[in-house]
Design a protein around this nucleic acid. Structure first.
Length: 199
DNA sequence: AATCGTATCAACCGCACACCT
DNA sequence: AAGGTGTGCGGTTGATACGAT
């Protein structure tokens, strides 16, 4: 069975979205909704884009309620915890973090949190300890973890002791503690216990 | 000031699955 | 039941920003 392409590639625009395209897509969806399908939406909206591209743009950036910017410490901890439970189920993880999209979480994981775990000597895929050899050859970028909790004290470079307590389905509890450089916190000792809803 | 290396993240691609006919 | 289509997901790429030299 040969599947037809999702769009006529030679006639559709690719690459970054312009302000005008964003406005056009937003206005169309606000006024008409998504309609019959993503495939016909770009034509109806007068956009020279693939339906898939429109969907991605809307879901990740234009949709009301999408949070932009740095992840809070709590969000970081939740992502680590959920990833330990679910693996690379980015859409499921995104579903537990209001306003965050799967793409953003995936990027954040790959650029920050994965390195954080590696620096801690933890395998980011399995969340189990790595061998020393791997640990010593991998360093996190700038040795940092982003945080933007503006309700706290003014930003200063400081260190926190972060403990992540993970409880999996078989009630096995693991604790990971790490001294981390965080931009917006004075020295504090944070311990959070997050448990996933059981299904 | 110029160049190079690295980090970040928006966007694309291909696959799998669900749904429809 | 089988084929066709649409959608969503996860992996990957590439452009850009930024810092170091």
């Amino acid at each position: 069975m040969v599947r037809s392409p999702c769009c006529e590639k030679e006639h559709t625009r690719k690459g970054p979205w312009s302000k005008e395209e964003d406005d056009r897509l937003t206005r169309h969806i606000m006024f008409h909704g998504i309609g019959r399908s993503w495939r016909v939406l770009p034509r109806e909206a007068g956009l020279n884009r693939c339906g898939k591209s429109c969907r991605l743009r809307w879901i990740n950036y234009l949709q009301p309620g999408v949070k932009r910017g740095n992840f809070t410490l709590l969000e970081n901890i939740m992502i680590m915890n959920l990833h330990a439970q679910l693996g690379n189920k980015w859409s499921t993880i995104a579903g537990r973090l209001p306003g965050r999209t799967d793409n953003e979480i995936k990027n954040h994981w790959n650029t920050n949190l994965k390195h954080f775990l590696l620096a801690d000597g933890t395998d980011p895929r399995t969340h189990k300890p790595l061998s020393t050899a791997i640990f010593t050859t991998t360093a996190p970028p700038n040795n940092r973890i982003n945080s933007s909790d503006t309700t706290r004290t003014p930003p200063t470079d400081s260190t926190i002791s972060m403990s992540v307590v993970t409880t999996n389905n078989s009630s096995t509890t693991t604790t990971m503690t790490k001294e981390v450089q965080v931009e917006s916190y004075s020295k504090l000792n944070l311990e959070l216990s997050l448990a996933l809803p059981s299904h």
